[in-house]
Design a protein around this nucleic acid. Structure first.
Length: 425
RNA sequence: GGAGAGGUGGCUGAGUGGUUGAAAGCGGCUCCCUGCUAAGGAGUUACAGGAGGUAACUUUUGUCGAGGGUUCGAAUCCCUCCCUCUCCGCCA
């Protein structure tokens, strides 16, 4: 949520900054509504003030007189009644306006950071760092070929259970998934993050709070009979964890790591990545999340990104760091660094982590504040995958593949996986 | 799922229609006293939004789980929803 005051007082600036996202946003009609609402507010406020005084007067009269049914008293009550009717008319109008304004503002994305590269789309993202040597050989197998050869997962059977874009991990595949989750959680926990395991089903308010609603309802799965959705990312429950709180500034930053299954409808991606582990309706992810002081989020952003990178480095997976351009930024983010892992079968880098600084955007929506010098201010939130598990497995399979068909397990993972090689069993 | 109880300020807890934004206690903060980790005294102690002032501030409205309703007037009555607790049922 953007600052309503800023929208009201400087609409041109707001439109200008938002236009960096490559689309035009019209603020002026929001402000027209706001002005209307304000006028009504003032009206209501003064009517209420008078009506309140009148009520007190009536109360006094009743206590002072022994006959509570005099004509004067009835006159006063009638006057009060007229106030009531008038106030409720104005309140009805106000309610409608309030809802409209709130809905409109909720659909405005966050401001892109001044530091984010200006651009229209993915093609304008800027590579700022490359780590490791990308494996470049001919005749390398894709991870789904490896998975099939080594019996690590089964997508055909999964369509019987659910539908396409679901996967069942089998045997060593399931074991590797579990090893990766434990490995990542351990590293981050040792690094100062508090581990949480939040609910996978979240309510509408939580999705609204982190920015998935109202605009992106078609991206998530909804439970029919309840106000509950399957969480698309742990970012949602983690933001909601401190919803409506004022957090003592001494406790900041709060750093959380959470493993969670993630559910996404992937609407509009038909035909893309139909094979393997890259794009599924359900996948596992270890998520990093910070609540920090407003002044510290720029450094925090670098830190959270570095913490995610650490996992790739320990796993010895080649990757690059990309600065996402203004036109490609997610709805809630002001600046995003993507980590992209090398997939040798495709000869390209694929997103495996997205580290975003949302500034006060989510905190405003979720009402998460801290106290600075007696006045409250919204805190800043940051999130980063550390990492997406399925895509990590894909990268390990492809980058670790041996000429004999086996896959080498990264050294750090051996204690978790229990072997240094995945062989056909 | 069935039956019952309940949701009040940072916490405990009063309050069943009229100066109650809310007693009292605890805690927090400020000051006073006290020659010293005690005791006592005084004051202060929520959030959001208007309006006015450069400003410390003044004033006003709303908020007692949420949203509606009744009433001149609601924490207090009615309805819906959410949540918590107890018992029963079911269950990993």
């Amino acid at each position: 949520m953007l600052d309503q005051k800023l929208i009201r007082e400087n609409p041109k600036l707001v439109e200008e900054i938002l236009s960096l996202r490559g689309k035009d946003f019209n603020i002026s009609h929001i402000n027209k509504l706001t002005i209307q609402k304000k006028e009504i507010d003032i009206e209501i406020s003064s009517l209420q003030s008078e009506s309140k005084k009148l009520s007190k007067l009536i109360g006094q009269e009743i206590r002072n007189s022994n006959n509570p049914n005099t004509q004067e008293l009835n006159e006063l009550k009638n006057r009060g009644n007229r106030y009531r009717i008038k106030i409720s008319e104005f309140e009805d109008k106000k309610r409608i306006l309030d809802k409209q304004i709130h809905d409109e503002i909720s659909r405005l994305p966050n401001f892109p950071s001044k530091d984010a590269p200006v651009g229209q789309s993915e093609g304008d993202n800027i590579q700022i760092k490359v780590w490791g040597d990308p494996l470049k050989k001919e005749n390398l197998k894709t991870h789904w070929e490896i998975g099939e050869d080594l019996n690590l997962f089964d997508s055909v059977k999964s369509t019987k259970i659910s539908k396409s874009r679901f996967i069942t991990l089998t045997g060593n595949g399931a074991r590797l998934e579990r090893a990766l989750i434990n490995f990542m959680l351990d590293i981050h926990s040792k690094n100062g993050y508090l581990e949480l395991m939040p609910p996978a089903l979240v309510n509408s308010e939580s999705l609204q709070g982190s920015g998935q609603l109202p605009k992106f309802s078609s991206e998530s799965f909804k439970c029919d009979n309840d106000d509950l959705w399957l969480s698309p990312t742990a970012e949602v429950p983690l933001t909601a964890y401190h919803k409506n709180e004022i957090i003592d500034i001494k406790l900041l930053p709060l750093k959380y790591v959470a493993y969670s299954p993630c559910f996404r409808r992937e609407a509009g991606s038909y035909g893309k990545d139909t094979k393997g582990l890259i794009r599924l309706h359900q996948f596992n992810k270890v998520e990093l999340y910070w609540f920090c002081e407003p002044n510290n989020s720029l450094e925090a952003h670098l830190e959270i990104t570095a913490d995610a990178e650490k996992i790739l480095q320990k796993l010895n997976l080649p990757y690059r760091l990309v600065d996402i351009c203004t036109g490609d930024l997610g709805f809630s983010s002001s600046r995003t660094f993507d980590l992209e892992v090398w997939l040798p079968s495709n000869k390209c880098y694929r997103e495996i982590s997205s580290c975003s600084n949302c500034l006060d955007f989510q905190a405003r929506r979720s009402s998460i504040r801290t106290k600075v010098n007696k006045s409250t201010s919204f805190i800043h939130t940051l999130n980063g995958s550390g990492l997406a598990i399925g895509r990590t497995m894909a990268a390990i399979l492809e980058n670790g593949q041996q000429s004999d068909g086996s896959v080498k397990i990264p050294d750090v993972l051996v204690p978790y996986y229990g072997s240094n090689l995945i062989k056909n069993t």
